[in-house]
Each structure stands twice: as structure tokens, then as C-alpha cells.
């Protein structure tokens, strides 16, 4: 039984890492205002949101399953307060920090409409701290860390996020103004401009 819990705890952690990696990459894509991977823009945003929520569910399963694991002997407090646990306190503490940040990011995202765009955005920036912390947690705590396959996966996740961030910082990242439109415009496809009426 405890073997199963341990496997579940590890497996869900790995899946959560992959889902959160997809989320971060799609979040950066959403920010760029481009369609991607054959998906229209709204779908990029939709998948960004859904992979974040599913990833969060996986993290909850990850946490709950390890709570009952007799080997790690975790207390509830270890999940929220970093660096106080007995079992690998540093690496586990990173997980607690990432978890706290995820709670903040998810809650402010769900309440985006009531807290306003500014607060939402400030907290959303914490993702850039959360994701690397979570990755270090995965590499440091994970008993899988010694397995070559996990190292490969972690490397792939890292390259995906690092690549997106570098692209995010490049000048052509965001489509602005006229550059949003196709350069070559087929004159036969130009629709007449709609007439704009003042409201009231």
C-alpha cells in the first residue's frame, strides 16, 4: 500500500511538472497574441487555463498521497511552511514555496474579475519564480532524479520554458499594430470597413 502511495505521489508530481510546463509555455504564447500549434488564439488561452487547473489537481493528489506515506512522514504544516520538515527539508521546502505560490496564482486567476487586472497580473508574474522553484524541488526531492529518463524530461521542460522566456524577451515577441496583419494583403479579400456610429 505504501509503495502504491509513494508511486502515486511521484507519478502525479512528474505529471504536474509537465502540465505546469505546458501552462507556462502557453501563457507566454497567449501574451504574444499569436495563434500557435494550429490553435486559434482563444484556444491557446483556453488550454493555458485548463492545463493550469488540471496541473493544480495533480499537485493536490501529489500532496495528499504523500501525506499518508509512512516513509516521508510529512505533516500538514510541511506543505505550507517551507524548510521546517524533517525529511529533506530544503528540497521539500522548495515544494512548499511553489505550492504557496500556486495557491496565490490560481486563486487570483479565478477571482480575476473581482480583484481587477492589475492585482491579477502582479500575482501572475510570480509564476516566473514558481516554475523554477518547482523544477528544483522535482530534481532535488525526487527519488526519480537519479533516473536518466527523469533527467531527460526535466531537461525538456527546462528547454521549453527557457526557450519561451528568451523569445518573450526578443523584440519580435509581440504582434503590434499593423504587424498583426498579414503583410501581403489580397485586395479582393478586403471587406468594406463597417460604419462606425457614436454611441448615444
Amino acid at each position: 500500500m505504501s509503495e502504491a502511495l509513494w508511486a502515486l505521489g511521484r507519478g502525479t508530481g512528474v505529471v504536474a511538472l509537465v502540465l505546469m510546463t505546458i501552462t507556462v509555455v502557453l501563457g507566454i504564447l497567449t501574451r504574444s497574441g499569436r495563434p500557435a500549434f494550429g490553435m486559434p488564439r482563444f484556444a491557446v488561452t483556453l488550454v493555458h487555463r485548463n492545463s493550469a487547473l488540471i496541473g493544480t489537481v495533480f499537485i493536490l493528489i501529489h500532496i495528499v498521497s504523500l501525506l499518508f506515506d509512512p516513509y516521508a512522514q510529512l505533516n500538514l504544516i510541511d506543505y505550507f511552511v517551507p524548510f521546517v520538515g524533517a525529511y529533506r527539508p530544503f528540497w521539500l521546502g522548495l515544494g512548499a514555496v511553489a505550492f504557496d505560490l500556486i495557491i496565490a496564482i490560481v486563486v487570483t486567476s479565478l477571482l480575476r474579475r473581482s480583484i481587477g487586472q492589475r492585482a491579477f497580473r502582479v500575482v501572475h508574474w510570480a509564476t516566473y519564480a514558481m516554475w523554477p522553484i518547482a523544477l528544483f524541488h522535482a530534481i532535488g526531492t525526487g527519488t526519480d532524479a537519479s533516473s536518466g529518463l527523469f533527467i531527460l524530461l526535466a531537461l525538456a521542460c527546462f528547454s521549453a520554458v527557457a526557450g519561451s522566456v528568451i523569445w518573450r524577451l526578443s523584440t519580435h515577441f509581440q504582434l503590434r499594430g499593423a504587424t498583426r496583419l498579414d503583410r501581403r494583403i489580397d485586395p479582393s479579400r478586403i471587406a468594406p470597413a463597417p460604419e462606425v456610429k457614436e454611441i448615444q
Binding site: 499594430g177 499593423a178 498583426r180 496583419l181 470597413a193 463597417p194 460604419e195 462606425v196 456610429k197 454611441i199
Partner: peptide
């Protein structure tokens, strides 16, 4: 889309 990529409805 207007010429700058912004959404435009018939009534503005």
C-alpha cells in the same frame, strides 16, 4: 479587425 488589429463592431 480594424487596421491595427483591434476588434471593431458595426456599432463601434
Amino acid at each position: 479587425r480594424d487596421n491595427w488589429g483591434y476588434p471593431l463592431a458595426r456599432t463601434g
